[in-house]
Design a protein around this nucleic acid. Structure first.
Lengths: 196, 196
DNA sequence: ATGTTATACGGAGGATGCCTCCGTTTATCA
DNA sequence: TGATAAACGGAGGCATCCTCCGTATAACAT
């Protein structure tokens, strides 16, 4: 999977593993409360750990984001697979986007993680990005093959556009309006239909 | 218009007016180069003015943004009026959105100003917000009356959605792809058509 | 001209956050 | 029970943000 064995050198230290876990929990809490721009020193403080330890485990803010929201990304990825197997192409795509948006609405901070994944700035944090791209790609290409949607639009572009749209609401305050955002996503999906 | 006379107290000081102008010029330059997050101290430095003076004239970053891009907002507002008078409803709306997007693409920093305007967080910087809302409102309600677009979508929602979409590209790097963004805006506009 | 005073100026300073670096501690392994 | 690789923690340098207030000066009155 992801953790290749590499070197059989030495067993990882117990405190290291524990601190990593503490940091992830603290980060989830802090990002939920304060948004994705929250202070990393606050995260370290909440975890009861030195700031240096935080940076050693997660060299960048983005790395921390990816780790915190990895589980959610996996869920979305799984959902894509199951929708692809059980719903008609356009319906599947729409439902998946709704789920994505809902997740972003629920967990403040998740949005940032998804945007990172959508930007596909490879190398770093590649994992989540790959999963999301693959998930979106599956649904889009299936819909395209079925002739349900226009073909001048890549999965990556679609994902990014939808997340941007969502971000316009959830980034700076103005919460709660999930219905509105849902409607706007629908507008976009309608616009993707084949007939132009 | 905007400058109501209020109190006939005293003539504004010459240095005050001059510094305000210097600050606006400097801000435009700095924001163009460094994006909307550029340091305000850098702006003050570029203007050859103390940081205190900057804050006195523009108490918040947003206030500075509004002032810097006020002219552009007015142009968009005028464009909306002229399109409303000269093009068929849907066409007018589409062209106006394209123009808005293009402006955001050209001037780094403009995007931030427009997003502020679209959020309509009243009271502060109300002026630009009003102009943009009015411009979008005119075009939307005309198209709606003509039966060209669905009616469960407000002008504000549309504007915000489109700017969010654009922001997904222009905020964090990935420049140049104006064609892509244009295409995505078209998708959204297509989705707004009446028939759902 | 010159004095008075409302206004504006400038930047020091306190606060916060980022990230690095390195002396100290500690878990693992022999 | 050492030896040592690995991890810890936080001080410190740097960059902002924004406020506050002593000083300077433009506008007005005489």
């Amino acid at each position: 999977m992801v953790q290749d064995a590499e070197k059989p050198s030495r067993k990882p230290r117990a405190d290291s593993i524990r601190n990593r876990e503490l940091l992830l929990e603290a980060a989830k809490a802090v990002f939920s409360a304060g948004g994705s721009g929250a202070s990393l020193e606050a995260v370290a403080r909440a975890a009861g750990v030195g700031i240096g330890t935080l940076y050693r485990h997660f060299p960048t803010r983005d790395a921390l984001f990816e780790a915190v929201y990895r589980r959610e990304v996996e869920q979305l990825s799984d959902l894509a697979a199951s929708l692809a197997a059980s719903a008609p192409p356009e319906e599947a795509l729409r439902r998946w986007l709704h789920a994505t948006v809902e997740l972003a609405a629920t967990k403040r901070g998740m949005l940032a993680a998804l945007e990172l994944a959508a930007e596909g700035r490879a190398e770093l944090y590649a994992y989540s990005s790959d999963r999301m791209q693959a998930a979106a790609g599956t649904l889009v290409s299936r819909a395209r093959t079925a002739g349900a949607i226009r073909d001048d639009l890549s999965a990556e572009e679609m994902l990014r556009a939808v997340l941007g749209l969502v971000g316009a609401w959830y980034r700076s305050g103005t919460p709660g309006l999930q219905d509105t955002v849902r409607r706007l996503v629908d507008v976009f999906v309608d616009g993707m239909r084949a007939g132009a």
